[in-house]
Amino acid sequence: MPEGHSVHRIARQFDRNFVGKTLSASSPQGRFAEGAGELDGRTAVSVQAVGKQMFLETEGDLWLRVHLGLYGAWDFAGEILVDPTIASANGRMGQTNQRGTDLVDDAILDDAGENSLASIGAPRRTRVHVRMSEQTRGLAPEDDEWPPPIVGQVRLRLLTDITAADLRGPTACVLQTPEEMLATVARLGPDPLVGDPVENEERFVSAVRKKPTVIALLLMDQAVVSGIGNVYRAEMLFRQRLNPHTPGRDVPEEIVRELWRDWVRLLAIGVETGQMMTMDDLSSEQYRAAMASRDDRHWVYHRAGLPCRVCGTEIALEEIGARKLYWCPRCQA
């Protein structure tokens, strides 16, 4: 399932390429035919990501809500312009929120052939696949056929005169009134990139500190905090050396606040780079390796049975809330 940084990146793609333009909407699969008919011919007015959900506003007070879930994906094709707020001032996507690491000029290709420092790039004719992983993956350049051919089961296709977005396999793809949209957002926990920063922190601290539920489950509860998934959950708990089985109400307030502030930092890095980078103080060589391979990007996630990077203890794997939890039994005792 995509975590919060991916959905914010998708929303920024829509803001850059669809907002202010008239939409041609269809449902090639047929499952959203009525909704596509309602969207067709309307102008996109605004877009907002909150946690793992995206809300696209169109004229006439109609909102499209999309939750990708486990299997959802967006494909973008045509003339695609990346949002400049994702890249650094010199056009590169770098580690501006990390300590001790300089930006590098050379491309860093991961095992999928993606340039992690410029994963979407400048305007060009291309296809881009944005799905449940943290990566924004460039596919092979397409031919000049327009609109591009339908590939697979497309729930919703949105077209402008030069850009296409195809949605596949979402958990939710629904139309909402403004009141319904606001009610959906109200049920979600705070998102560092939405709303007042001070109020968001206080909401998170209050929600965690009053609950007997263990902190590992609270961090995945989208009513407590928006956007955190399995990867960020494991990494944030390790970074605070916090036992995942600690009840929320037993976590010291200063640690709860540090969890929130760490989420603010990590989400910003994820939105900027397109990667869930959770390790600090890396040399340039270590940073390049981490951007190229997830195996070098995390402290504990996906490292079951391997030695802890800090103490050497074997990283534990257990199931909690029907999801895998990775943690160090010594550092997080």
Results as ranks from 00 to 15, higher is better:
1 M>K: 15
3 E>C: 08
3 E>Q: 05
5 H>I: 07
6 S>G: 07
8 H>M: 10
10 I>W: 02
12 R>N: 08
14 F>L: 08
16 R>Y: 05
18 F>E: 07
21 K>V: 04
21 K>P: 02
23 L>Y: 00
26 S>P: 01
28 P>T: 05
35 G>K: 09
38 E>K: 13
39 L>N: 02
40 D>N: 13
41 G>W: 06
42 R>F: 05
42 R>E: 05
46 S>C: 02
48 Q>K: 15
48 Q>R: 15
50 V>Q: 00
56 L>F: 12
57 E>T: 10
61 D>G: 06
62 L>P: 10
62 L>H: 12
63 W>F: 10
63 W>R: 11
65 R>V: 05
65 R>A: 13
68 L>P: 00
68 L>E: 01
72 G>W: 06
76 F>M: 09
76 F>L: 07
87 A>P: 03
88 S>G: 12
88 S>C: 03
96 T>Y: 09
96 T>W: 13
101 T>L: 12
102 D>S: 14
103 L>D: 12
103 L>H: 11
108 I>W: 14
109 L>Q: 14
110 D>Y: 01
110 D>F: 03
114 E>Y: 00
114 E>P: 00
116 S>V: 06
120 I>P: 00
120 I>T: 04
123 P>F: 05
124 R>Q: 14
125 R>T: 15
129 H>R: 15
130 V>N: 00
130 V>W: 03
131 R>F: 14
132 M>A: 12
134 E>M: 09
136 T>D: 13
138 G>A: 11
141 P>K: 04
145 E>H: 14
151 V>Q: 15
151 V>F: 09
159 L>H: 02
160 T>D: 03
161 D>P: 02
165 A>W: 07
168 R>L: 13
168 R>E: 10
169 G>C: 02
169 G>V: 04
171 T>N: 09
173 C>R: 05
176 Q>R: 14
185 V>N: 03
187 R>Q: 08
188 L>S: 01
189 G>H: 01
189 G>C: 00
193 L>P: 11
193 L>K: 15
204 F>A: 00
204 F>Y: 09
205 V>T: 13
206 S>P: 02
206 S>W: 00
209 R>Y: 01
210 K>G: 06
212 P>A: 08
216 A>C: 08
218 L>H: 00
219 L>I: 05
223 A>Y: 04
226 S>Q: 07
229 G>M: 01
230 N>D: 06
230 N>V: 06
232 Y>F: 09
234 A>R: 01
234 A>N: 06
235 E>S: 07
237 L>G: 01
238 F>L: 04
243 N>L: 04
243 N>A: 04
250 D>C: 10
250 D>T: 10
258 E>D: 10
261 R>N: 15
261 R>G: 06
266 L>Y: 09
267 L>Y: 03
275 Q>M: 15
275 Q>S: 12
276 M>E: 04
277 M>P: 03
281 D>C: 11
281 D>T: 13
282 L>V: 13
283 S>Q: 09
284 S>I: 07
285 E>Q: 11
286 Q>G: 15
287 Y>D: 11
287 Y>K: 01
292 A>D: 08
294 R>V: 14
298 H>A: 05
298 H>V: 13
308 C>R: 06
310 V>S: 09
315 I>A: 07
317 L>Y: 06
319 E>H: 08
322 A>L: 13
324 K>M: 12
325 L>C: 01
326 Y>L: 02
332 Q>Y: 06
